[in-house]
Design a protein around this nucleic acid. Structure first.
Length: 240
DNA sequence: ATCCTGTGCT
DNA sequence: AGCACAGGAT
């Protein structure tokens, strides 16, 4: 078990030279981080950019968002889809205004309690804004970790979620949480991509179990059978 | 553990 | 047409 943070060091070194310059990076304002994360949950960077700028211009801080009407928020959200997320955004802003005196919280439990913020978004906001040691686990992280350790347990099971969360935590250097989280996600987005990853230029190739097995694309393993399965039962009576 | 949502891929 | 995605909600 590599608890020496060498993987993290490699990821952060890679991140230094390969990271994209994005407007929501290098800000410590939890409000701005929050807006960017919610937009990015459903939109590619290229298209989310315009919405991000327009949103912040119109609602520069959480109080401006809270004091706006839901109609105004939805109008600015138009074209993004997932309108319940815009409603959650607005409701959460009012919640911050009322429960936290208009100051967006940076405490994990407080952030996590807001509408539309789950484990991933809470960890992202808190670690980016303050460096607090919460490991993000999104689709990119699942792929990087699934491949690094060639994990056969499906991601969408309780055992899988537990395992992935534990591994994500084990890779996280407590004093570099924000940078590490950004680095591992960017690495998944640009280098350890879902299809045809170019492992020949990967700085972790020597430590990657999936590459060693020759099947990086097999990971992460999923189960996701919402599909109805036909089951046939054979039963019989026993009479005396 | 299952459902929800709009987009884009196959 | 049907499914995968990606998080959150229930």
């Amino acid at each position: 078990m590599p608890n020496d943070y060498n993987v993290s060091r490699t990821l952060r070194r890679w991140y230094d030279t390969h990271r994209r310059a994005l407007p929501w990076r290098d800000t410590r304002d939890p409000y701005r981080i929050w807006i960017s994360e919610v937009i990015l949950q459903q939109t590619r960077v290229a298209q989310g950019m315009d919405y991000y700028h327009r949103f912040l211009e119109r609602f520069p801080d959480v109080r401006a968002l809270a004091d706006a009407s839901e109609q105004d928020v939805l109008r600015l959200w138009q074209g993004l889809g997932y309108y319940s997320r815009a409603r959650n955004l607005h409701a959460a802003a009012r919640d911050v205004r009322d429960r936290f005196a208009g100051r967006f919280p940076t405490d994990y439990a407080a952030v996590r309690s807001l509408s539309g913020i789950g484990d991933y978004t809470a960890a992202a906001i808190v670690s980016f804004a303050t460096g607090a040691p919460y490991a993000v686990v999104d689709g990119n992280v699942l792929r990087v970790i699934g491949r690094l350790f060639a994990i056969d347990t499906p991601t969408d099971t309780s055992a899988g979620r537990h395992l992935y969360n534990d591994l994500a935590r084990s890779l996280l250097p407590p004093d570099q949480a924000g940078t590490h989280n950004q680095a591992i996600m960017e690495f998944g987005a640009l280098q350890c991509v879902p299809r045809n990853p170019d492992c020949s230029v990967c700085p972790l190739v020597a430590r990657c179990a999936a590459h060693a097995a020759g099947t990086p694309e097999r990971f992460p393993v999923k189960q996701h059978r919402t599909k109805t399965v036909d089951r046939y039962f054979h039963y019989f009576y026993v009479t005396t």
